[in-house]
Amino acid sequence: MSAASLEFSQHLRREWRFAPRRGPLIMMLVGVLCVVFNHLVLPLFPERAIAFMRVGFRLDDLAGVLALNDLMGVYFPTFFVGLAGSLGVVLLAREEHRLELLLAKPVRTADLVAARAVPVLAWTAGVGAVTSAAMAVAMAAHAGIGTSVSALGALGGGLFLTALTVVLLAALQVAFVRISDPFTGLLVACGAWFGTMMPTAVLLYRPDAFVGRPAALHGLAMPSLLWHEGTLGWLGPLSLLLALPLAVALARAAGARLERSDAL
């Protein structure tokens, strides 16, 4: 192990000790409650409302409809708890005039940003993983809803979305290091999140937009995670494993970008 990486790991351990835990733990509970709420309430909807989602998102049965809503229960809390933590890495510190103090530490800027971002991203991944596991348990335990989505497929879909969230938040950090107002950062992040949801809305209201574009349909619309649930059983966990080092690399790139910036 090189001296630089040793310094980074030591610094990471220090940042880890001070990383906020209460928010992610509460959001784990929120994610699990979302899943429970879906499985208790959605089956009580009239058939027309279920059919609206089933036909619109090309799902086979109630299991698909529940799984899609569960995926939203994974994506929404996971992304926004991660975003709340990510704002604290550079943006809030800059606004509160603490960034110069942090950068005065004998640590390279890339290491500093990565060490502050990694605990946030790890807790984000934890929230997504726990909610995905709850989703898998709910799919396995909920009888009579159909067989189109297995527990393993549901888990894989949730973990894939978690991986997407972790990478998206790390990529946003690259933008955050050049933004001075945290609320502008929040707005940019919300825009990015909506961008990932837009293809799913297009699928519901303008399915003809995907005619002749199977790659866009299967690569961008969220229900495709359920259409390929067999593949997601192994692709989801693998994506999350690959997302973590990629997120670290992006956080370091954000730090390198901050180092080149004049505006602290």
């Binding site: 609320f183 502008t184 303008r206 399915p207």
Partner: peptide
């Protein structure tokens, strides 16, 4: 005058311009 207000305004303008495209041909089940 804040930048975040202008970014929010730009997003709202985008929504106004995009919605007619999204609703040009809603499928029968919708």
């Amino acid at each position: 005058r804040e930048r975040k207000t202008w970014i929010a305004a730009a997003m709202l303008v985008y929504a106004v311009l995009a919605i007619p495209l999204l609703l040009a041909d809603p499928p029968p089940h919708v």
